[in-house]
């Protein structure tokens, strides 16, 4: 019996040592030279492999960073300036700081504002629905609510709000990798510059229909009335195809446009409640605030609660 055990141990050990030797020589022979800096750079990248930089993964991005002369057009939105600074140190180059960004959903067509006109019963995918139908509401520009964006988000920064039927961006988790921007067939996501305290003001609508039609199909649609355009002191608002757009780079977050909008299509997030004497606040305490604001505030709060 003991001889069997001994034989087994000896033969397996010999086999193991032989294999190790073979593997060692094969590994030596087929070794490919690689710039060691690629590994170093890769270690400093977020390893999310999200594709936000435009490359297939962090490794590919690291290779591109090491090979290229300058950092033009190479930026990791997930790691942000901090990561790029570290990479620049490794490679001995200058990092170009970029403004951090965050995704916003340019649609506020919650179920209450935008009544359904049909019932969609196909495969649960925005891409499939939008290939065949404008949507199940009167607005063919708005959110379909099937969550393609939630599916592609690698950072748990998006979730569907069951009440509004719209996705909600969690600003803390959002890395502006742009996956949702690509996934949304209605092109509703926009990467906007992050302001302090994550404040933002934007037009939450993409409806290019004429005012009356847009308004009929959705209570909070931008009707293209140009009131905000006229009131903006910084020329940050442009009008195109019956639709207002606020340029985040020019916008100084003065909030003048927000009360002008007759349909509450302009959304402000992250601001303290307006001062007591302003009529807007009276409305708010009366519960008469535009439904859009209420819901956006609610969802904002729910995000905050989650963070805590």
């Amino acid at each position: 019996m003991s001889s069997v055990v001994l034989f087994t141990i000896v033969s397996l050990s010999v086999l193991g040592v032989l294999s190790a030797i073979i593997l060692f020589f094969v590994a030596q022979k087929f070794k490919v030279f690689e710039d060691p800096r690629i590994d170093q750079v890769e270690e400093n990248l977020p390893a999310a492999n999200c594709g936000g930089c435009g490359f297939a993964g962090c490794r590919n991005f690291a290779e591109a960073l090491v090979k290229s002369e300058s950092f033009d057009g190479l930026y990791c939105p997930v790691g942000g300036n901090e990561t790029m600074e570290k990479v620049a140190q490794i490679l001995g180059r200058e990092a170009v700081a970029q403004d951090p960004k965050v995704a916003v959903l340019r649609c506020n067509g919650a179920c209450d504002f935008r009544p359904k006109t049909n019932q969609y019963d196909g495969a649960s995918s925005c891409a499939i629905e939008s290939a065949l139908y404008g949507g199940d509401t009167g607005c063919q520009y708005g959110c379909l609510g099937l969550g393609d964006c939630v599916d592609v988000c690698n950072f748990d920064a998006l979730h569907m709000d069951p009440v509004t039927g719209l996705p909600v961006v969690n600003d803390t988790n959002c890395t502006a990798c742009g996956a949702c921007v690509d996934a949304c067939p209605k092109d509703l996501f926009e990467l906007r510059k992050r302001a302090k305290k994550d404040r933002k003001i934007y037009v939450a609508c993409r409806n290019e229909d004429k005012g009356g039609i847009a308004r009929k199909n959705c209570e909070v649609a931008c009707t293209g009335c140009t009131k905000c355009f006229k009131v903006c002191p910084y020329e940050a608002i442009t009008m195109n195809n019956n639709l207002a757009f606020i340029d985040a780079d020019k916008c100084k977050l003065c909030r003048k446009c927000v009360p002008e909008c007759p349909t509450n299509a302009i959304i402000e997030i992250g601001f303290p409640p307006p001062k007591i004497k302003e009529p807007a606040d009276v409305e708010a305490t009366d519960g008469k605030t535009g439904p859009a604001e209420t819901i956006m505030k609610e969802s904002k709060e729910s995000i905050n609660n989650k963070e805590e």
Binding site: G122, A123, S125, I128
Partner: peptide, 12 residues
């Protein structure tokens, strides 16, 4: 299963 739905999307 919605086979054709996804195949159509793949075709697009």
């Amino acid at each position: 299963r919605p086979l054709l739905d996804y195949i159509r999307l793949g075709k697009v």
